[in-house]
């Protein structure tokens, strides 16, 4: 029962992730990423200051000081990587579930290690995709933008997975997966 419940939850989560990553949706603030802009329910507030939470992608783009064209290109790159990594991220959730199952079932150290190794394997693949996407974005940078490029990789994780609690990735670098 426990397993069935969690598997269902995982599938639902994966669907939500897929919606977020399909075409860059959920990353840019014009794409429904933050605060429901464009919903017709908050744009005519009579001049009241609107506090928009920056999306993880915007934080990433700001860190790299991307111009408009670079931002568009980066959005495409990250969107493609998201699509490519979707099944892997689902596997990652399954691997995490397997770890929980092993712990709940009192698995031996060896068996627990197997589940951890499986997690490492999938996680490395996801991070590998992140590195490729990041390298593509870096390739578009001008020399004066390259100085802080390395620190922006930390933020890539925030682009790939929703954070815990569905809070919208407020800190950018918090990856939902580990």
């Amino acid at each position: 029962m426990f397993i069935r419940l969690l598997l269902t939850a995982m599938m639902a989560t994966a669907l939500a992730f897929a919606q977020g990553g399909g075409a860059g949706g959920g990353m840019g603030d014009d794409m429904g990423g933050t605060g429901g802009r464009g919903s017709g329910m908050g744009d005519d507030t009579g001049g009241m200051p609107r506090m928009q939470r920056q999306s993880p992608f915007d934080i990433f783009a700001d860190r790299l000081k991307l111009n408009k064209d670079q931002k568009t290109e980066a959005l495409t790159v990250v969107g493609d990587a998201l699509k490519e990594s979707a099944p892997l991220r689902q596997q990652l959730m399954q691997a995490k579930l397997d770890i929980a199952k092993a712990m709940l079932g009192g698995a031996s150290t060896d068996d627990l290690k197997k589940t951890m190794d499986a997690y490492i394997s999938v996680d490395a693949q996801v991070t590998g995709l992140e590195t490729k996407a990041f390298a593509k974005v870096c390739a578009t940078l001008k020399p004066n933008q390259q100085g802080k490029a390395a620190s922006a990789f930390e933020l890539m994780a925030g682009l790939f997975i929703a954070p815990a609690g569905g809070a919208g990735g407020r800190s950018g670098g918090r990856r939902g997966r580990n």
Binding site: A16, G35, S39, M48, M51, A162, G166, G169
Partner: peptide, 17 residues
């Protein structure tokens, strides 16, 4: 979750701040 950060906030008349 898919709405990311919506959480009902954008759909209500509560003060935005």
């Amino acid at each position: 979750s898919a709405q990311r950060g919506g959480g009902g906030k954008g759909a209500s008349n509560t003060p935005i701040m």
